[in-house]
């Protein structure tokens, strides 16, 4: 069956709500409208306004309400309308959602999911295209999930809802309409398992979320040029699968991290650090990164310069010390 990622997410919510009465869905415009991306389409009709409901327009209140409901027997799933509109809830997320289990020595866990449509590629106006995953991944106590495939969107959301800990579930907006042949329900690998999406022998591309299809495209193009690139899809940032990433890089000896978010102090930097810590003796080249420039996410007319694309990935792969000459980009004097 051909399914879009949006439909797979919708099915995951529906199936979870059918199986467990304690699962609730709430947020802004998630009721009659079905969410601005229609991910909650039909849920109020099927389960009633008690199970899938609109709230007042206040993100800290939405997340705070979910905390209280999770303290008292429910498994809330909340939708933040867009990445940048989750920021009002950040104090709730960082100070309470992430810490409640620790603050109560395990007495109160918060089985809740915060769904965040994120990243660019859809020509969004300002404040609609942030890649905010680093803020959450940097906060101990949260799990951070970044599906890149339709099957993963379904399976990882089901797992997020069933998880005893809070999960920030990052939905790449540009992938909502991505299609795949999938029979639902589907169960893919669990949290903390990265997957090799394409095998290769010359270098490893490590990617997650919206960067995965771009990395796969780049690997396809490289193959035409006779270069064999392996693509690892992280799937979950927390927990992180060091083993799969390191095994791939040890095999290929070269690594490029591809991420849409800005690079400085980002998840891509963490990955590069972890790879060089673990794979130093297998590396033929420094770990390089293709990320967004360190600028506020640009407007639609400039978006194409910001997003990692096939050419930039291939150019970066070309700089992986194939001829063992210093990378001109980082020569003394240039930076």
């Amino acid at each position: 069956m051909t399914v879009t990622m949006g439909k797979a997410l919708n099915a995951a919510l529906r199936d979870a709500m059918r199986e467990d009465d304690s699962v609730l869905m709430f947020g802004e415009d998630v009721g009659a409208l079905g969410g601005v991306f229609r991910v909650t389409d039909g849920l109020t009709a099927e389960f009633g306004d008690d199970r899938c409901f609109d709230t007042p327009l206040a993100e800290a209140g939405i997340v705070g309400l979910a905390v209280g409901m999770a303290m008292n027997g429910f498994r809330p799933v909340v939708e933040m309308q867009f990445d940048a509109f989750a920021y009002p809830a950040f104090e709730q997320i960082a100070s309470h959602v992430a810490k409640m289990r620790n603050r109560t020595r395990g007495a109160i866990g918060l089985p809740m999911v915060i769904r965040v449509p994120y990243a660019g590629g859809i020509g969004g106006v300002e404040h609609h295209s942030d890649s905010s995953e680093a803020y959450y991944a940097h906060t101990p106590g949260l799990k951070v999930v970044t599906p890149a495939t339709v099957a993963d969107a379904y399976s990882l959301l089901r797992e997020a809802i069933a998880d005893p800990d809070p999960v920030v579930f990052m939905e790449a907006k540009k992938l909502y309409w991505a299609k795949d042949e999938v029979t639902l329900p589907v169960t893919t690998e669990p949290f903390g398992t990265a997957v090799v999406r394409r095998e290769g022998s010359d270098a490893t591309l490590v990617a997650y979320g919206p960067a995965v299809p771009v990395a796969l495209e780049a690997a396809e193009a490289a193959a035409a040029d006779g270069r064999s690139l392996e693509v690892v899809d992280l799937r979950t940032l927390v927990p992180f699968d060091d083993a799969t990433v390191a095994a791939s890089v040890r095999r290929t000896g070269r690594c490029v991290v591809v991420a849409e978010a800005t690079g400085f102090a980002g998840v891509s930097a963490e990955i590069a650090a972890r790879v060089q810590e673990r794979c130093f003796h297998s590396l033929w080249a420094p770990v390089l990164r293709v990320t967004g420039w360190d600028v506020p996410f640009p407007p639609p007319v400039l978006e194409k310069y910001q997003l990692p694309g096939v050419d930039r990935i291939l150019d970066t792969v070309d700089r992986l010390q194939w001829d063992d000459v210093p990378d001109p980009r980082f020569l003394a004097g240039s930076r």
């Binding site: 705070g64 309400l65 979910a66 209280g68 303290m71 008292n72 709730q92 100070s95």
Partner: peptide
């Protein structure tokens, strides 16, 4: 963190 527990009380009571 001041007043951040107030929405929790609401959620718990509503639940």
């Amino acid at each position: 963190p001041l007043a951040t527990h107030a929405p929790h009380a609401v959620g718990l009571a509503y639940a």
